[in-house]
């Protein structure tokens, strides 16, 4: 069990390092690559939690598709280094600090709130998941019974976004 904790610390440190460097480095391509580091380590943490399906989807969708598109866009835009206008800098810094602080408060709040309920986290215990036939089956059951409506609404939302993107990209249809 100690091995698990050591691994968790390693992955967490790597994920945090990636996240910090992502915003710290100047080169946008390097930023995306550090984001890749963070995503892969988050996937590794899902594996430590026995959530194989979520881990694999994290790698397949986020690192394998979305981040590749990011990299694509950053590479196509090239590296024109324009100086940041003074107005942007003077407005951006206070707003960024404010939003950052709000995020910290939220994250701390969630951590504190979930610590209170630790030990009874709903009915999807490891035993229940094993009885349902594994991660994939358990998640599928949940998605198509309890969470059917949110699931379908989310898919319609994605469809709308896809149609909108095609409409914006095509000049004449």
């Amino acid at each position: 069990m100690i091995a698990m904790e050591v691994l968790f610390v390693l992955f967490a440190l790597a994920a945090l390092t990636g996240a910090v460097l992502m915003i710290a480095v100047r080169n946008p391509v390097h930023s995306v690559l550090f984001m890749l580091l963070t995503f892969v380590n988050v996937a590794a943490m899902f594996v430590l939690l026995n959530a194989y399906f979520v881990a694999v989807i994290q790698v397949l969708v986020y690192t394998g598709a979305i981040l590749v598109l990011f990299l694509f866009v950053v590479m196509l835009l090239g590296q024109q280094r324009r100086p940041v206008p003074e107005v942007v800098r003077s407005v951006q810094a206070p707003v960024a600090i404010l939003v950052g602080l709000a995020l910290v408060v939220e994250v701390v709040g969630v951590v504190v709130a979930s610590a209170v309920t630790a030990g009874h986290k709903g009915h999807d215990t490891p035993q229940a998941i094993a009885a349902a036939g594994g991660n994939v089956q358990a998640l599928g059951q949940q998605l198509y019974t309890t969470w059917l409506l949110p699931f379908e609404v989310a898919s319609v939302l994605l469809l709308v976004a896809a149609v909108g993107a095609v409409f914006l990209a095509k000049e004449e249809i």
Binding site: L33, V40, Y52, V56, L60, T63, A65
Partner: peptide
Amino acid sequence: DVNVALIYMLAMSSVGVYGIIMAGW
């Protein structure tokens, strides 16, 4: 012997593209 083997393979093959992009850039 994991229960998500098939999508694991797909995920790994999708990560392989980073090598190509990074080499090109």
